[in-house]
């Protein structure tokens, strides 16, 4: 029987900044290379969707205006999303999406409520934090979903690389764990401390880049979790030839050392 998984792409028309589409392409390809059928459903404002049938949720970043529009629609789905996340639904949220999955975003003028999947809140910062990022996930990943392939410090897969561009600063509460710790870059609070947020199988991060193409192990991790969500069993994903992905990852590590970061 062919394995089939379903991805819901939330608000692709409004939350599509900074090449976040690359994440969808990566999940799609890495499934299809393994003969896994990944169905992608686009969910825009007002569209109805049965989240019980969804295994993976994706929400990217948007411009301020786009964010405001979808915030209202997202709130209407709050209970359903929370319920399904508690039942193992996998989610990847980037930048603005990550912020809206927290409790709220306090901008300079207003307080935009989020859906509280993450025990976190975001406040507008004075500066915009821009630059290449390297995140260490060797320690943090031990606390992610138990029983899944973790990334040991010696593992070449122990880092995530990407590019951050945000002015919001996101502070995590006790029920939300960091995605990882900054080796290079600013991170959630701009202080070079922790990056992103994790609750059950929901992940939030500021990393664009796109994130998943250059961090294929993280893409595969999400696919494994999505499989578990659907089939209640572990899957041994077939190994792929990731030489090109690894080269790009390595090049990004080097570039993060040489290129300068800015905060304006």
């Amino acid at each position: 029987m062919k394995i089939k998984l379903t991805l819901a792409h939330l608000y692709p028309d409004n939350m599509n900044l900074y090449g976040d589409l690359g994440n969808i392409v990566t999940l799609e390809k890495r499934c299809s290379w393994r003969q896994i059928d990944l169905e992608i459903i686009k969910v825009n404002v007002g569209d109805s969707i049965d989240l019980e049938k969804v295994d993976l949720l994706f929400l990217g970043g948007g411009q301020d205006q786009g964010q405001k529009i979808i915030a209202t629609d997202l709130l209407k789905r709050k209970e359903e999303i929370q319920k399904e996340i508690d039942r193992g639904l996998v989610a990847l949220t980037i930048c603005g999406g990550f912020q809206l999955f927290g409790q709220y975003f306090q901008t300079k003028t207003e307080k935009i409520p989020g859906i509280g999947v993450f025990d976190s809140y975001t406040v507008a910062g004075e500066k915009r934090l821009i630059g290449n990022v390297v995140v260490d996930i060797s320690k943090s990943s031990q606390e992610w979903t138990p029983g899944f392939n973790h990334f040991t410090p010696k593992d070449k897969r122990a880092t995530l690389v990407g590019f951050e561009n945000h002015s919001g600063q996101t502070i995590l509460g006790s029920k939300c764990k960091p995605l990882g710790y900054i080796k290079k870059g600013f991170g959630n609070r701009g202080d070079g401390g922790y990056e992103g947020g994790v609750y059950k199988n929901a992940f939030g991060t500021y990393l664009h880049g796109s994130l998943l193409p250059k961090n294929p192990w993280f893409a595969d991790y999400l696919i494994s979790l999505a499989y578990f969500r659907r089939y209640h069993d572990n899957i041994d994903l077939a190994l792929l030839d990731d030489q090109i992905e690894l080269e790009a990852h390595r090049a990004a590590l080097t570039r993060a050392e040489t290129a300068k970061t800015v905060s304006i």
Binding site: Y18, L21, I130, H208, V262
Partner: peptide, 28 residues
């Protein structure tokens, strides 16, 4: 400095219309 944008360019359109491709630059 952010190269994420290449993922929004629809390179798929031309993937069957090339005979050879060379890539170069700092982010080749």
């Amino acid at each position: 400095t952010d190269i994420s944008w290449i993922w929004d360019a629809e390179l798929e359109m031309i993937n069957r219309l090339t005979k050879n491709v060379t890539v170069s630059g700092l982010r080749a």
